[in-house]
């Protein structure tokens, strides 16, 4: 079985759904000749033509509004917003149009669209290195996924495109070159269900909950803790941020009695804060210690490599937090 990159896994899902369903169209900035700023859509305009792979003006709100209308008119648009930082320009269309149409018009029609966007950093400075998944995950009417592995990226994107509701699909720039196995044969067409977390490493002493890039950090930390401290970590990949699969996390905490939440977002008001609130309610009787969080300090991301390193949550920080617990 060959290893496939996260980037190629996303592209394969886009391509296969376009082959399967004529209604699926892609739109976004620099997704044609340029191939996408992270090269995800490379080759697709050559294969499917400019009517199905649309180069758009630099107009994030317009792109999403247009996609909402195209979805209402019978298409299944997958809109790419170059980074989640730029997605802020489209917040109104995402929150007030995409997420509201089905509800406020009494269920008369749905808006089957996917907004693909990218979180991440890498000396990009204060305005290009942010992470806003919690903002989207706070909105009823949206579904929000944030895959960590190539297989989940493919499986969740298939599910997102086939879902009748608006789905925010957040990739991570530092995951694009990571590799993993994809299901083959008939299994290749299987979706990863939205709303299901996954225990990716079994353990007995502490539960680490993570998603996207932080999953890899949590797994690294778990190896280190096993090796150096003899602490056995169970690692749960949340995969979907709305709706959250709380039962999988709660079951795990019932076994381990300790919980650490790992995210890249800011400590104040970040997605981790919302997770913590809900899980402290649900797990209170099973916990031997307060729930811990790994998050970014409340500081804008600085450009300088040394400063940036001081802000990004890493596996070392996860190890440290677990050691404090034990």
């Amino acid at each position: 079985m060959s290893l496939v990159s996260y980037r190629d896994a996303v592209r394969s899902a886009l391509r296969d759904e376009m082959l399967r369903d004529q209604r699926v169209i892609l739109m976004g900035e620099d997704i044609t000749g340029y191939g996408g700023s992270y090269a995800v859509t490379k080759g697709l305009v050559e294969e499917f033509g400019p009517k199905r792979v649309m180069e758009t003006p630099i107009a994030e709100a317009g792109i999403v509004g247009f996609a909402v209308g195209a979805a209402m008119g019978g298409l299944i648009p997958v809109a790419e917003l170059m980074t989640v930082n730029f997605a802020l320009l489209a917040l109104d269309q995402i929150v007030n149009s995409a997420a509201k149409c089905h509800y406020m018009f009494g269920g008369q029609w749905s808006v089957p669209l996917v907004v693909r966007t990218v979180s991440g950093f890498g000396q990009l400075g204060p305005t290009h290195s942010q992470t806003f998944e919690g903002w989207f995950a706070s909105v009823p009417g949206l579904k929000v996924v944030m895959p960590a592995t190539p297989a989940d990226a493919r499986g969740l994107l298939l599910a997102a495109i086939r879902d009748p509701d608006p789905v925010i699909f957040i990739e991570h720039s530092l995951l694009y070159s990571t590799k993993g196995e994809l299901p083959e044969g008939e299994a290749a067409d299987e979706e990863v269900p939205i709303g299901s977390a996954k225990v990716v490493r079994a353990g007995t002493d502490v539960t680490l909950v993570a998603y996207s890039r932080m999953l890899l950090q949590a797994l690294q930390a778990a190896e280190e803790l096993e090796r150096s401290d003899g602490v056995s970590c169970e690692v749960v990949d949340l995969r979907t941020l709305r709706p959250v699969d709380y039962p999988t996390v709660v079951e795990s905490v019932r076994r381990t009695h300790q919980l650490v939440l790992c995210g890249e977002d800011w400590r104040t008001g970040g997605f981790g804060a919302s997770l913590l609130s809900e899980l402290s309610d649900r797990c209170f009787d099973d916990l031997d210690a307060p729930i811990q969080r790994v998050a970014s300090p409340d500081v804008p991301m600085a450009y300088s490599r040394q400063l940036e390193r001081s802000l990004i949550p890493t596996s070392d920080e996860v190890v440290e937090v677990v050691r404090r617990l034990n």
Binding site: G65, F66, G69, A70, A71, M72, G73, L75, P77
Partner: peptide
């Protein structure tokens, strides 16, 4: 833009 998108459809 929603109207424009619908016209595209």
């Amino acid at each position: 833009p929603i109207g424009a998108g619908m016209a595209y459809a």
